[in-house]
Design a binder for these strands. Sequence first.
DNA 1: ATAGGGTTAG
Length: 859
Amino acid sequence: MRDAIAILASSSITLPPNSTPSPATTTPSNQQSLSPASKSKSKKFSGRKQSLKSTAALLHSTVRWNTSPSRQVHRLKDYAELASDLAEDGRFSDLLMIAESVVVSGAKPSQFLAMLNLKSVSAGISRMLEDGKLERLIEVLSGLLKLGFPVVKLFDGVAFESLRQECLRRFQNCVQPEEIVSLMETLQGLGFSPNQLLASSQVIKLCVKRRSPGAAIRYAQLFPQMETLLCTVMIEFGKKRDLVSALNVFEVSKRSQGSPNTYAYRTIIDVCGLCGDSMKSRSIYEELLSCKFTPNIYVFNSLMNVNANDLSFTLRIYKQMQRFGVTADLASYNILLKSCCLAAKVELALDIYRQTKYLESTGDLKLDVFTYSTMIKVLADARMWKMALEIKEDMLSAGVTPNAITWLSLISACANAGLAEQSIRLFEEMLQAGCEPNSQCCNILLHACVEARQYDRAFRLFRSWKENGIQPVSTDFKLKTHNIISADCSRDGFSALSDSPVTSEVQYHTKRLSFAPTTATYNILMKACGTNYRRAKALMDEMKTEGLSPNRISWSILMDIYGGLGNVKGALQILRSMHQAGIQPDVVTYTTAIKACVEHKHLEVAFSLLSEMRRYQIKPNMVTYDTLLRARSQYGSLHQVQQCLAIYRDMRKAGYKPNDYYLKHLIEEWCEGVIQNRTQNKGQFTPIDDTADSGPQSLLLDKVAEHLKVGNVESLSIDLRGLSRIEARIVVLAVLRMIKEKYSTGNMVEDDLWIITEGISGAGTSKNSSGITELITKLLENDLGLEVLSAGSRESSNIESDSELLSVSSTEIKEVLKQSDLPLKLDSPSRRPAVLLRLKVTKASLHSWLQRKGVSVSE
DNA sequence: ATAGGGTTAG
C-alpha cells in the first residue's frame, strides 16, 4: 500500500502504470516538482490531461480487483487521504483524477468527499489562490462539479476567505466590469453565492462607474431578488446622473410576471428626479397608465415628489390618485407641503396642514417631524415667523420631537424676518433640548445676524465659537443678551411667546461642542463685511488657512462688494480670475457682475456680459433680466429701448412670467419724453388710473415692440384694439417718439398716420374701451397740437381707399358710436361686418409738429 | 423602499 501511495504521490504519473518509480520521485517535493510545470502553463495543462487518463485507468483496475465492500471502503479512505495530500501540495489535477476513478468505481462523490481531509484540501486551495491561480482552480472545480462533487464543501473558512481575497484583488484590478461579472457568473455556477464573495454594492458601483448597464444587468440576474437589485442599479445610475443607462436597466426590469413592476416604475421615476428630468418621469407615468394598470401609492408619491417644483402638476396627480381610489398617506401630504413650499403658496400649505391635522384628530393620520418641519419651512420662507413658532407648539403638544432640521427651520424663520435675538434664543433652546447644532445651524445663526445687520455680532459669535467651541451660553450671549432682550422683545412682539427662561439658571450641557466653520460660514461673514473689501479679502485668506477653499459664492460676494464700491473694473477682474482659477461662474455670478455695471452706468458692458454668459451656455434668469431692466432710467435712445424690448422678448421666450413693471415704466418714461417739453399743464398727463389696467402686459409690449421694429417707419398704422387706456396712450406715444427720432436723423414722414381705436365687432362692445378714442384724440389735439380726423369704416372695405371714409371731427365721435351701438342687439354678432373706428393724423400735421420749436428728442 | 435643511444676485 505504501508503494501504491508512493507511486500515486509521485509526480511521474506519466510513467506507464507498471513501471517502478525512481527513488528521486518517491519523495515528493512539491516545490521542486511544481515549479517547472507552473512556468509554462499550456505545457502543464496538456501534460496533466494526458497523465489523468493513464492514472485513472490504473486506479480503475485497482479498485475493481478488490471486491469485498469493507476493503473497498478501506481503499476509498486511502484514496481520500492520498487525494487530500495531493491537494495540499497543490496537485489538483491528480486529485481530480482520483476523484474520477472513485466515481467510475461506483462510489458516491459525497462519500468520498466526507473522507477527504478538508483542512489539507483547503490549504491547497488557499495556496493556489494566493499564487493567483484562480483560473486553474476554477478548471479543477468545474471538473469536480461535473463528476457530481459539491465543490463548495471543499472550502473551509480559510479557503473561502482566500477566495474572497482573490476576488477582491481581481475586482480592484479589473478594467472592464464585464470581467468581474463573468467571474461571478462562473463562481455562482460552482455553487458560490456571489454576494458572499464580493459585496454586491461594490460590483454595482463599478458597473455604474464604468457606465456599463449591460454588466450590471447580467450581474443582477445572478440573484434571486434580481428585480430589487436592478432597482438598486437604477438608483446608482441616477446618482451619477446617467439617466440613459438607468433607462436601459429599467427596460429589463419593467415587467415581472406579466404585470408592471411598480417598484421598478417608482424607482425610475425617482431616478428621473435625481437626473433632473422630471418631464421624463411624467411620460413614464403615462406609459404605466396606458397599461391599464393602477399605480400604487409609491408610484404616485414618487411622481409627485419628483415634480414637486410644479405645484399644479402635483395637485393634478393628487386628484388623479384620489380618482383611482388610492388613499393618500403621510408621505403624500408631506410632498404636497413640500410642493407648496417650493411654490411659496403659504395659504394652500396651511389648508393642507389643517387637513392633515383634521385627519390626525380622526385617527387616520399621524403627523411626523417631516410634516411639521416642512410647514415651518413654508412659513419661514414667507417670513411668517410667528406662525412658524405656533407650528412648533402644535408639534410639541402632539408629542413630536423637533430634530436638528426642525430647529434649523425655526431659526431661519426668525433669521429671515431679521430677528437675530429670536434666532439666538431658539438656538439656546435647541441646545437645552439636547440637539447638537451642526455647522449649518451655526451658519444660519450668523446669517440671522447679517440679516439683522448686526455685523459685529456675527463676528463676535464666530470668534467665540472658534476659540471656545460652541457653548450654550456664549460670552456674547451671557453678557449682551439680557439688556438687548427687553428691547428686542417688544420690537419682535416676542414677549407673549417667550415661556422658557432665557437667562441664567437653565441647566445647560457642560459639554462644549466643537465648531467647524465651512466655506458657507465664511461666505456669510464676508457678507457681514458690508463694503469693507479688505476685511472680506482677509476672510478669504483665513478660509484658505483653515483648509477651505472659496467657492463661486465667495467670489460673487467679493464681486458684489467691489460693485457696491463702484469699482466695476475690480468686479470684472474677479470674474476673469474666476475663469482662470477654474471656478465656473454661474447665473448668480454674472448677474452680480451685470448689477455692478448697471448700477454704475456701464450699460453696454452689462449687455456684453449678457451675451458672454450666453456664450458659456449660462441661462439668464428672472433676476438677471430684472437687473438689466432695472436700469431703465439709462435707456434713452431708440436703440436702447429696442435692446430692452429684446431682453423682454428673451425673457418671455425663456418662460419667465413677465414682470413688466420696470419695462412698462421705461417705455412710459421714454414715450412721455415726446410731450414733456410742451407740458404747460402737468396735471392732464396723469389722468389715467394705473391700477385699472387689466389687459395682459405682453400685448402692450408686443405692440410697442412691433412698432419700434427697425424700418417700420413706412407703415404708419397703429391698432389699439384690445389695449387698455394707458396702454393705448403708451403705444401712440411710442410711435410718435420713434417718428421724432427718425426725423432727427433725417427721415421724413412719408404718409399719414392711422390709428385704429376701436373695433365694434361683437355684442360685448367693451365700455372701458369706449374712452380710448376720446383719450387719444385729446392727447393728440390738446397735448401735442396735432390735427385729428375721425373715421368709421367697414372692415371688409379697402382700408387704403378713402372713398368710403367718413371724415368726422372729433366732436362727432359719440354720434358714430351711438349709430354703431344700436344694431348690435338686433343682428347676429358673428354675421355682422365689423365697424372700425379710426383716427387719422395727416402727414402735413405731423410735419408741422416735427418742425415746431421745442419738439426735439429729449435725452 | 418614499419625504424635510444653511450660503450668493433681486
